[in-house]
């Protein structure tokens, strides 16, 4: 199973990578903005994408729309600091399958991934 990590913070990208190391996901790329993320999705069609919302160049929700257009099967897990309900619901509307609020602890991430990948 392939994974793309999208977050404008490189520390955050590495944090996610570290937390998910037990999942044996094949991390096929990381992106620091929405535009790069869409390009990688188009080229490599990852199974799972973690997606930040507040990002330069192209924000996460717009990016999500584009991802769903080019690769609707992708399971997108939103990981954002924007803790209002509406943003979460909008993300679900646009096709996200999982949702996490920052700050994200390792437990938060694994629990959410268990649900996303139907692992228990």
């Amino acid at each position: 199973m392939t994974l793309l990590i999208v977050d404008d913070s490189s520390v955050m990208r590495r944090t996610i990578e570290k937390h998910l190391s037990d999942y044996h996901l094949d991390i096929i790329g990381t992106a620091g903005n929405g535009r790069d993320a869409v390009q990688i999705v188009k080229d490599k069609r990852p199974d799972v994408v973690t997606l930040d919302i507040t990002m330069p160049e192209m924000d996460g929700l717009t990016c999500l729309e584009n991802i769903m257009e080019v690769h609707p099967q992708a399971k997108v897990m939103i990981i954002t600091a924007l803790s209002d309900k509406l943003t979460g619901l909008q993300a679900l509307d646009k096709g996200a399958r999982g949702f996490l609020y920052k700050p994200v602890s390792p437990e938060d991430l694994t629990k959410a991934f268990d649900k996303l990948l139907n692992r228990n």
Partner: peptide, 17 residues
Amino acid sequence: GEISNVVSGNVRETYGS
């Protein structure tokens, strides 16, 4: 940057989008 992002992002739980 990330801390300031998360701290101010979380305020949206109260202030909304």
